[in-house]
Amino acid sequence: MSENTASQNEPKALPRVSPATDILEREDGFYVYMDIPGVRRGDLSIDINENELTVTGRALQGAAEKESFLEVQFGPGEYVRAVSLSDRVDRERITASLKDGVLTLHLPRLEKLAPRRIPVLSA
C-alpha cells in the first residue's frame, strides 16, 4: 500500500502488474481476454516478437492532488503480459479490441495448408 502512494508522486516509476488473463478456444480460433482497467487506447501497445505476443499498458488513474486516501486497494500501474503463440495461429489476422477496460485478442487458426505431393527425383 505504501508503494502505491509513493508511485503517485513519481509517475515514471509505475509498479509492473501482470493482468488477470483468460485464454480460451472456440471454433474460430483462440481468444485472450485481459483485465486492464484504467488503460486508455493510446496507452496500450501490443507487439509480436517471433513467438511471443506482449501487451503493455499504462493505467494512470489520475486523482486530484488534494485528495487524502482512506482506503487504497488498487493504484496506477503498468500492465505487462506476454502470451506465447502456437504455430497454428495466423499472425496476419490477429485482431484486438478494448472495451470497458477489457482487452480482447482474437487469434484465428491458420487455414489448413493444401496437401501437396512431393515428386521424387531420380539422381
Partner: peptide
C-alpha cells in the same frame, strides 16, 4: 478492489 478518498 476499492479506493476511498476525500477532499474538502
Amino acid at each position: 478492489p476499492l479506493n476511498v478518498s476525500e477532499d474538502e
